[in-house]
Design a protein around this nucleic acid. Structure first.
Lengths: 254, 254
DNA sequence: CGGTTGTTTGAAGCGCCTCAAGCTGAGTGG
DNA sequence: CCACTCAGCTTGAGGCGCTTCAAACAACCG
């Protein structure tokens, strides 16, 4: 398990033996968490850092009027709160969508490592920076695309992110979100998400049944929403194609 | 100038003499930049890190259809691209709004410091994490508030951010953005921004003339949009009230 | 097997957009 | 000093995209 994390980080930052030894202090406390369960709540002091091994989770805020806004999806291999743990208190919630396997890394371990092992810190920062780039693109998505392109863009992004960790087969992947959750993500009503999905199906761009999403025509879907993958900062030589991330290969997805 | 940066960082992270010495390697190359000028363009390899001393700038993406989405505003004291400099290439642009004084910190200097001075790195990370929290709130803003509350929320946020660096007088601050720029920020049309501003004026919440924005009734405006400042992670003891950031006090704003 | 959660469809209305035109103010040149 | 220009602001009219409300249907589960 520790070796797995090390392998991921080493894919973009060379580590010394001392770095690796320090990383092994990330005691692997794996927790099985049910669906629709909060991992962290607004107001909490950030403690352990959470790493998703299997399943999907999300970052969200509850609004005064009872609605909620989902701000990020987490898929296997993603850190939930790496980019928060320095701050004083959480300004949002993190909760699971599907059942999840979560690794809890003690904050102290992170701090020790980042203080004494700059290369590890750089590697973790890189993860956080890509997450932020995704967040920026979500802002663009919500701010400037209409519903059909907006949802198509989400599907394209998840395709690439899940491909990078070996969770896509034949352009299909697990999609355990309800239409209401998609609505809370995209800034739309659930009714309109339903109609938009119907339209994407009618155009034979996707199918979505039994919580499995299939993209029928990837180039067409990408063109449809003007998808530009540069913001994901995927390093093709390392991440894409047939190559899987070894430490996630044998874990059940979605 | 270097001392100024050191002072800012020390407000939330104690530094050693060695840390401070390293920070002085941030050779202060101050540049005067005209309005509506790009500092960095999409596709560029991140180089120097930019720190705004005076004026306003923004982060934005150009879209295939010619529209653009603004994703962040930068005000005096903000780093533009601290959270990007590790990545391979820029996935967006950064440009000025008003004339700006910009400090360019060589990437090499940042890397040297972050490698050898973990406390400085933590301080810089803190800046970046707050910027990301702001970005998340912008997503909430665009995704779930309608135009009047959306724009009101922006005004409340800028009030607090500018207060923290001593650029607010009597609830007034410089607002050099055109209505089209506000529209590109909020995911609205410029026509609708115009009508929304008219409405906020009619309700006697704000005035906006000669590029000066005045909030006539702060508590009312905050209540109007349900503003919750927690995401700014302001440390009141240090940042708010009468206390100014010394290194920005004598620089002309907006 | 009912109960509950999620999906689907219809109908009516509002918020925001587009198109279009006129207005205002600042800068420029004759 | 006024005419001209141009960017930004303002206002009107019409239409579309999305929302809300409502109800029926489907799928899952104890």
């Amino acid at each position: 398990m520790q070796d797995a994390l090390i392998r991921k980080l080493e894919s973009f930052e060379e580590l010394t033996d001392a770095d690796r030894a320090a990383l092994r202090m990330f005691v692997p406390r794996v927790r099985q968490v049910g669906p629709r369960t909060d991992l962290i709540r607004e107001g909490d002091a950030p403690g352990d850092v959470h790493l998703i091994l299997s399943g999907y989770a999300c970052r969200y805020k509850d609004l005064p009027d009872g609605r909620r806004q989902i701000m990020a999806y987490f898929v296997p291999g993603d850190f939930c709160d790496l980019n928060v743990f320095i701050l004083d208190q959480m300004d949002h919630n993190i909760g699971t969508i599907s059942p999840c396997q979560v690794v809890e890394i003690p904050r102290q371990a992170i701090e020790e490592v980042t203080t004494n092992h700059p290369r590890v810190m750089r590697a973790l920062m890189w993860c956080a920076l890509v997450d932020e780039a995704v967040l920026r693109e979500w802002l663009v998505n919500i701010g400037s695309r209409q519903s059909d392109q907006r949802i198509a863009h989400l599907f394209c992004e998840l395709l690439l992110r899940l491909e990078a960790v070996g969770h896509v087969n034949n352009n299909s992947y697990a999609f355990p979100f309800t239409q209401t959750e998609v609505a809370d993500t995209m800034g739309l009503s659930d009714v309109h998400v339903n109609r938009t999905l119907r339209e994407l199906r009618r155009l034979e761009l996707i199918t979505l049944k039994g919580r499995i999403l299939t993209i029928l025509d990837v180039p067409h879907l990408k063109a449809y929403c003007g998808f530009n993958p540069n913001y994901l900062h995927l390093r093709n030589a390392r991440w894409s194609g047939r190559r899987q991330v070894p430490w996630l290969r044998n874990v059940q997805g979605g």
